[in-house]
Structures are given as C-alpha cells and as structure tokens.
C-alpha cells in the first residue's frame, strides 16, 4: 500500500510541478549553468577555457575581498535586526489594537515608494546640505557628510530597515495567523502561561515562516543596492562598496567572467548557509505536519 502511494505521488507531483519546473529551468536554471560555464572562460565571446583561474584571481583581488567583507558585514547586522524588529511589530499588530489596519498599512508604505522618490528624499535628508545636517546644526552639533564617511554604513542599514521591515511584517503576520487558535486554547487549558505559549507554540510553528523570512531578507539586503547606487554612484565610500557594486561594475566593463565567478562565490557562501538552515527547518517542519 505504501509503496504504491509513493510511486503514484511521483507522477502526480510531476504533473503539478511541470509548468513551474519547465519555465524555471528555461529561464533561470539553464542561464545559471551557462553563467557557470562563462566563469570558466576568459572572455564571453570566443574565449578559451581557463578552469579555475578566474576564481583564483578573484580571491586574491583586494577590491573583491573588500566588497565581500562589506557585504557580509552589512548582511550580518541588518538581517537579524530586521527580523527581530519585524517579528515584534507583527506580534504587536496581531491582536486587536485600535486603528490596527491603519498601522499595518503605514508600515507597508515604504515598499510602495518608487526608487526615484527614495533617492530624492534621501538626498534631501542626508546630503551635506540636507535637512538632517540642518537639524543637527540647530541643535549645536556639527554637520557631517553622511554618505562619505564611516557613517555611510549606518545610513544604508537604516534605509534597508525602513524599507523592509514592512515586507517581513506581512510575512510574519500571515504566518502568525496560520497558527490555529485552538492550539493556544488547548495550551492555556493545560495551564501554560503566556510566555510559555509564545515559546512553544508561536516560535515553533513560526519556523517555516522564519526560515522563509530569513532568506527573503538576505535577498532584499542585496536589493538595497539599487538605492545606494542611485545616491552614491558606482564607487561609493569604501565602507559600503559591496558585492553588487563590484558585479555591476564588472558587467559594465564587460568583464563577464569576473562577474559570474564573483556571483558564484557569493552563491556558494549563501548556499552553505541556506543548507544548514534548510536541514534545521526540515526537521522541525516534519514534526509539525507529521
């Protein structure tokens, strides 16, 4: 009986998966492999095979290393921060609070703003002659150049948080709402206090969502590149020169093989991280849906 079910499920699964898998392979996976191929060449057109030389060169390249470190540092700070804050917000907004809908929408607003607006406003606030400096001056502090100093990292983190907390909040909210109310009821009947409930039910059942949010936050931390690029150009302050800048510049100067090699190294690092999380998540998920 069990064996037959497994086999049948394979075919059914195939049918369900077909549209997505075919499209995905054609538009994502195959290009990914082609990119891989390019990273082993020395020129995108009529190149010759050079094996791992590109990777070797990259790892010894100072600029690449700096970009990698900056990216790592940025992500390591902003992603956990984002998740904590957005989870907190989601929990606060999960109960019935006065004007709840209004609040929920307002936190989502940053997502809605087009890049151009963000850039305009960023300029207005953070530039050398911007209003933040003006404010500081009137409080007696000396103005600084926000984008061209070691403060630039802080600015980018703030913008990232501002933009993405809403994003994660939506996901956490949906995840929270998916936890059936009866679990809580059953738990309180059993005599569990609020904190205990939070720990054993909420956190645990939120795990798939958390995993998801984590990955998405990482992806979004890359997206902040677009705004940073528009404000600070292709060569921003050394603290915020990240992998995306490096890759973008490589693309523009037609150094395609450096681009793909860099992307693959980055993918490798992320893959390892995701793999670990994946295993953890799978273990917990299996215990839920049994």
């Amino acid at each position: 009986m069990l064996k037959r079910r497994k086999f049948n499920e394979g075919i059914t699964a195939g049918l369900f998966l077909a549209p997505s898998a075919v499209g995905f392979a054609l538009f994502f996976f195959i290009p990914f492999l082609i990119g891989c191929y390019y990273s082993l060449m020395d020129s995108p057109v009529d190149g010759s095979f050079v094996g791992l030389r590109n990777y070797n060169d990259l790892l010894h390249n100072e600029v690449f290393r700096r970009a990698a470190w900056n990216t790592f540092r940025f992500t390591a700070i902003s992603v956990p921060l984002n998740m904590l804050l957005s989870l907190g917000l989601a929990m606060m907004l999960n109960r019935s609070v006065y004007l709840r809908s209004l609040f929920r929408i307002s936190f989502l607003f940053p997502l809605v703003i087009p890049v151009a607006s963000v850039v305009l406003i960023w300029q207005i606030v953070f530039e050398l002659n911007g209003s933040l400096n003006g404010l500081m001056q009137s409080w007696g502090m000396s103005p600084r150049d926000w984008m061209e100093s070691h403060n630039s990292l802080a600015v980018v983190i703030i913008v990232y948080l501002w933009k993405n907390i809403g994003y994660n909040m939506v996901l956490f909210l949906a995840g929270l709402q998916n936890i059936p109310v009866d679990y809580y009821e059953a738990a309180s009947i059993d005599g569990a206090g609020k904190f205990r409930q939070w720990r054993s039910i909420t956190l645990v059942y939120l795990t798939p969502t958390t995993f998801f949010v984590f990955i998405i936050s990482i992806i979004n931390s890359f997206k902040v590149f677009r705004e940073t690029y528009m404000i600070a150009g292709e060569y921003p302050h050394e603290d915020i020169y990240m992998m995306q800048h490096y890759m973008n510049n490589m693309f523009k100067s037609l150094d395609y093989q450096k681009l793909t090699s860099a992307a693959f190294l980055m993918a490798l690092a992320i893959t390892l991280l995701v793999f670990v999380l994946f295993l953890v998540e799978r273990r917990i998920t299996n215990s839920i849906s049994g």
């Binding site: 290009p31 990914f32 990482i218 992806i219 681009l259 793909t260 992307a263």
Partner: peptide
C-alpha cells in the same frame, strides 16, 4: 534546494544568457 539557490543569483549573472 536548487530553486532556492538559483533564486539567490543577482540578475546580472543570468542577464546575458
């Protein structure tokens, strides 16, 4: 897993292909 990893690629990589 493959889905996830490929999704993490920045678009410049897959652009030319």
């Amino acid at each position: 897993f493959i889905y996830i990893v490929t999704m993490l690629m920045p678009f410049q990589v897959t652009l030319v292909p």
